Simulated assay, not measured.
Amino acid sequence: MRRRGQTRAVLAVVTAAVLATGCGAFGGDGARDSGTGATRSAPKPVPVWNRSPDSIAAVGDSITRGFDACTVFSDCPEVSWATGSDAGVDSLAVRLLGVTGAAERSWNYAVTGARMADLPGQMEQAVARRPELVTVMAGANDACRASVSSMTSVAGFRADFEKALSALRTALPKTQVYVASVPNLKRLWSKGRMDPLGKQVWKLGICPSMLGDADDLTDTAALRREKVQRRVEEYNAVLREVCAKDRRCRFDGNAVFDYRFDTGQLSHWDWFHPSRTGQARLAEIAYRTVTARRP
């Protein structure tokens, strides 16, 4: 009887220990199960920036329309750096989507003469296509006015750009944005003024704030051009700052502004807009920015 009582006591202690440790200690469903069936890998994070977007919409001004690249005073969207089909340009759309893909899944809503105030309306058109990438190149016409006093204010420029991005984000929160810097207008003046024909074309009203009286080298003219140049730099600072607040927006880091366009990259009809070769350089800059591992 004493031995039976001792056995019962031992069994009671063992049972209590088993209940306290739980089934997991013996290969059940507990947290300490080291079997392969219980191991679950965490889901891979979705990248914020897709370097291979499947569709593109372009907004902006005459540069994105290929103005004066094919014929005088005419748009030539087939050579657009953003969405063009010209083989010599090898546009951003062709590089990313292929020739067929670019023809089917890229759209150009840029308008010659457009300013930043026109960008929200263009963006609404782009949104309707639901693109995975939107390219933006605007601001030159905000500086290229009849006079320095007519240039778009920096505050107005910022408000219009923010409005355009807000319209995109409200409708398409995951669509990516590539923003090109405003070109260096003073450099375009310094290169184009060497051509007599180009200066005659400028008199028709191409960027008068910078290009007007192209041979006037007085202090007054130099100050005027410097004010325009400073405003372009301020516009680019706005593009960089606003874009930096959106994790799906990439600014080109002033690559377009810094590019040393030469006469070979300028239209020989107006010595201001990019030629086919110039459009190809813009496409290279855009592709390099969009496909970079990091902004």
Rank of each mutant, 00 (worst) to 15 (best):
N50F: 04
A57L: 01
V59Y: 00
G60Q: 06
S62H: 08
I63S: 08
I63H: 09
I63K: 03
T64N: 13
F73E: 14
D75E: 12
C76V: 03
S80I: 02
W81C: 12
T83E: 04
T83N: 10
S85N: 08
A87H: 11
G88F: 06
S91G: 10
A93M: 10
G98Q: 10
T100L: 14
T100H: 13
T100P: 00
G101V: 01
G101S: 02
E104Q: 15
W107C: 07
N108I: 06
N108C: 06
Y109F: 15
Y109K: 01
A110K: 01
T112S: 15
T112G: 10
G113M: 11
A114R: 01
A114G: 00
D118E: 12
M123R: 08
V127M: 05
V134T: 09
T135I: 03
T135V: 03
T135K: 09
V136I: 12
A138K: 05
G139F: 08
N141R: 07
S150P: 00
S153I: 06
S153H: 03
V154H: 02
V154N: 01
F157V: 06
F157W: 06
R158P: 00
A159F: 02
F161M: 03
K163S: 14
A164K: 10
S166T: 14
R169Q: 09
A171G: 11
P173K: 00
K174R: 15
K174V: 12
Q176C: 09
V177A: 05
V179I: 11
K186A: 11
R187M: 09
R187Y: 00
W189G: 06
W189L: 15
W189K: 03
R193D: 07
R193P: 06
D195L: 07
D195P: 03
